[in-house]
């Protein structure tokens, strides 16, 4: 009885690890996609609405999905809480928060950081160019993430359970 419970626990644990690794691949592609949508929305807010940056960030954060809205809403919150903070610093806070909750590669984070350096310190036209550049880079990163996801998501999903079963077979 104890053996069976232990075997189930080992298989379940390894399977869960495999599934969570597979999910991180899926989540990365999703987040990169919706960050591009967020930048589109931000572009619209800046070019058509001429909304002030804190308000624009907060609005974009409300519209996006759960994970990717973190960066926008956290940046908006940093604007609200710390007086005299620059847009780049507020964005940096958001990027940090996002990097904590989602597994992003170093390149993705550096794209977002570079975007933050140019944010809010120039005229409208320059801002729009900056957004277009970041969006282009994010779309390239997304393509790469989709490729990695296609390859490895399925593999990790099976591999976790198989590894658990192998351990059980050897130990039993």
């Amino acid at each position: 009885m104890v053996r069976v419970i232990g075997a189930l626990l080992v298989i379940g644990g390894c399977g869960y690890c495999g599934l969570s690794i597979a999910r991180s691949f899926r989540l990365r592609a999703q987040v990169l996609r919706s960050l591009q949508n967020g930048l589109n929305l931000l572009e619209a807010e800046i070019s058509y609405g001429s909304t002030p940056l804190p308000l624009a960030l907060a609005r974009v954060g409300e519209k996006l999905g759960r994970e990717s809205s973190l960066v926008f809403s956290q940046a908006a919150q940093a604007f609200r809480l710390h007086k005299g903070v620059t847009a780049g610093e507020a964005w940096e806070e958001g990027v940090k928060r996002l990097a904590q909750s989602v597994v992003l590669s170093q390149e993705d984070i550096s794209i977002l950081r570079n975007f933050g350096h140019g944010l809010g310190n120039s005229a409208k036209n320059e801002q729009l160019k900056n957004i277009a550049l970041a969006r282009e880079q994010l779309s390239m990163a997304e393509k790469e993430a989709c490729l990695a996801r296609e390859r490895y998501e399925k593999m990790w999903r099976y591999l976790g359970f198989c590894l658990g079963a192998a351990i059980v077979l050897v130990l039993i």
């Binding site: 399925k154 593999m155 591999l159 079963a165």
Partner: peptide, 22 residues
């Protein structure tokens, strides 16, 4: 039976890893 199970799992490992290009 144990060895048979290891054989099956090994073949699954082989297929999955090969499909993933490793």
């Amino acid at each position: 039976f144990q060895i048979a199970g290891i054989g099956i799992l090994t073949s699954i490992f082989h297929t999955v890893l090969k499909q993933a290009g490793k």
